[in-house]
Simulated assay, not measured.
Amino acid sequence: MIILVGGGPIDPEWFQSLPEDGQWVGVDRGTVFLLEYGLRVDHAFGDFDSVTAVEKKMILQKVSTVHEEPPEKDATDMELALQWALSQNEEIKMIGVTGGRLDHFFGNIQLLLSDHALNHAYPVSIEDEKNKVTCHLPGNTTVEKDVHYPYLSFIPFTHQVKGLTLSGVKYPLSNHEISYGMTLTLSNEILDNFASISFSEGILMMIRSRD
């Protein structure tokens, strides 16, 4: 698993619950966060305009491979890091990308909707202490019950999502159509050990969350 760590707020207690055997990748100021935790960082991406001169020196000394980019570029630091991570053929988590600037947050949501991320052979997600966000193409998905994220919500990311069927949940659906502007599919709950989700057309965002 590759964990891309941005410079946004990260809950320390939740962070300590993440698997230690993941490959930690720093993205701009997120690199400092990782190094201060004493973690090994093999790759760091960014223009590093949000770190001090002392912190940048530490990054250059302690990170095996630093992918430094100019501040003026056509992709965000996180997009560049994700492009690299997608080439590694592993599960990918992006953390430290919520709770800060909304333009950065929605930009990171857009990264989940890229063709490469949607068609990646392994899950690609955005996570924080209260949410796990993934985006899906048509097909069937099995979701295991998780006490950390008890709520299950769906948001269409195309004008329409057709043939949506939800089973094993508190509010099931059968061959339903949802579209922009609807809140029907928010705040569901998994009743069984697993829930089954399928749909035939569109792009669907799944959010697993807690209060």
Results as ranks from 00 to 15, higher is better:
I92M: 05
I3F: 01
S17A: 10
F199N: 10
M78E: 05
P12R: 12
I178T: 11
T183R: 11
S198D: 14
S200T: 14
H116C: 08
L113K: 01
E127R: 02
G99Y: 05
F106D: 06
D47A: 09
L102C: 07
M94G: 07
P70D: 09
E68Q: 10
E189R: 10
N131H: 06
V97R: 04
I95C: 03
H136K: 12
L184H: 01
V143T: 10
S153R: 00
P156H: 03
I207A: 01
V25Y: 00
W14S: 03
F157M: 10
D128F: 06
I2H: 07
N193Y: 01
H104L: 12
I3Y: 02
T142V: 15
H116E: 15
T65H: 09
D211R: 03
T183A: 08
E72R: 07
F157C: 12
F199M: 09
S125L: 13
Q61P: 04
V133R: 03
K130R: 12
I126N: 01
Y149N: 08
E189L: 09
E69N: 14
V143Q: 12
D21Q: 14
N131A: 14
D115R: 08
I109G: 04
L18N: 02
V161W: 03
L102A: 02
R29Y: 06
D42N: 03
V124Q: 01
I190V: 13
E20V: 07
H116T: 13
L86A: 01
P9Q: 12
N188D: 09
Q83G: 03
I190G: 08
W14G: 13
F199L: 13
L186D: 08
F154E: 00
L35K: 04
H176R: 13
L173D: 14
L204R: 02
L34D: 01
S198L: 07
Q110K: 05
L35I: 05
E177W: 10
P12L: 04
L191P: 08
C135E: 00
V63Q: 01
W24E: 04
H148M: 14
R210C: 05
I126W: 00
K62S: 09
T65E: 15
E13A: 10
F157V: 00
T185E: 08
T158H: 04
S125E: 15
G181V: 08
S174Y: 08
V133M: 14
E129T: 05
P71S: 11
P156T: 08
V25I: 04
L164W: 05
L4T: 03
Y37A: 11
H159G: 14
I3S: 07
